[in-house]
Nucleic acid binder design. Structure first.
Lengths: 193, 193
DNA sequence: CCTACCGATCGGTAGG
DNA sequence: CCTACCGATCGGTAGG
């Protein structure tokens, strides 16, 4: 059955993500990928049409996972504080289930060629817009405290985007708890006693 | 005079940092660097001995700037909270004065070859150790609140390390103020009213 | 600092 | 999926 076999293309995809993460996209050759999956270099091209195909699939898959995740959160009828917690969980869920892909998504997307790059950047801009709207709704209701929305967004995204590196060090729930505490407090104004 | 001339080597260094930042180390060719400074590719080798020489100079210069900066802060007789503020200022000072180098330092160091890589990683480990000691001294005196020192360190470092991207967007003092507020609050336990 | 050039490696194709 | 191979580009050297 389709659903319980893993295609050669998927094997290539997984091997490529791992290699791109470790060596970087440009330093990874088709020959590296071929030998990782036990094929001759030219045989790769029976399954993909170019090296960049692998990169764009990895990056776009991740981008769509984040988009779907934030859309779901965005339209839920819960408080901004709860939405922030869901966003943290979203980043950790994706990072912990696909750490190599997230690494490539974070660090190698800039090597996408123009067509796909445009699509990627557009998606990322939509994500940023939704994320900022959630932050602003918390800001306007006095739940979140910050001055500059752009700085605050960049700060939060960078705080979340290294989490794929923690996959083999801490269980997800430990990281989730600590980051949730740190980030919630960061946006929370302290009452002076 | 030596002090008011800028050597060809320094020109190469600056051009390389800019190109490595924009295209990545592996995607930047000696020919790219040569044409950026108006030389023939082979002439580069009158000033440097290899392409990796440029990368290692950029990365190690940055690494030593951070080391010197943290040593100075570490031995000052001020509170942990003040030291954290000085650390934020250190990261912003270096990022704002050498944004391209900091970008390369952050993202391209992994392409250093083994000898220099070892030196780099050692320096970074020392930096991390000092940074964590500052955090722990605040923790032990009840000034900083966190559970996991490693997660908290990674969180802070990542929060600071994107600042080179902000150089052409916000004045340094704006970014400093916002980050100082966010990060101070992140480590600060809120008194319930 | 240049002209001329080298061996190695790259992504990818032809043909079966 | 393989053998055989291609043109392009790479970092770097020789020699002046």
């Amino acid at each position: 059955m389709k659903s319980d076999t893993i295609s050669k293309k998927e094997i290539l995809y997984i091997a490529a993500a791992e290699l791109f993460k470790d060596k970087g996209y440009n330093a990874t050759s088709i020959r590296d990928i071929a030998s990782a999956v036990g094929l001759e270099p030219s045989s790769i091209y029976s399954h993909i049409k170019s090296k960049e195909d692998l990169l764009s699939q990895i990056c776009m898959d991740c981008a769509y996972k984040f988009m779907e995740g934030i859309k779901d959160i965005y339209f839920q009828d819960v408080s901004p504080r709860k939405k922030l917690k869901l966003l943290i969980a979203l980043h950790l869920d994706i990072a912990y289930s696909h750490p190599a892909s997230v690494s490539v998504f974070n660090d190698e997307w800039k090597y996408l060629s123009s067509e796909i790059l445009t699509e990627f950047v557009t998606l990322r801009a939509e994500y940023e817009k939704k994320f900022k709207k959630i932050l602003m709704s918390g800001h306007d209701t006095g739940k979140f405290h910050f001055t500059n929305i752009d700085i605050t967004f960049s700060f939060l995204i960078k705080s979340l985007s290294w989490s794929y590196k923690a996959v083999h060090i801490y269980p997800k729930n430990i990281l989730n708890k600590e980051l949730t505490t740190l980030l919630s407090r960061a946006l929370n104004k302290c009452q002076k006693k």
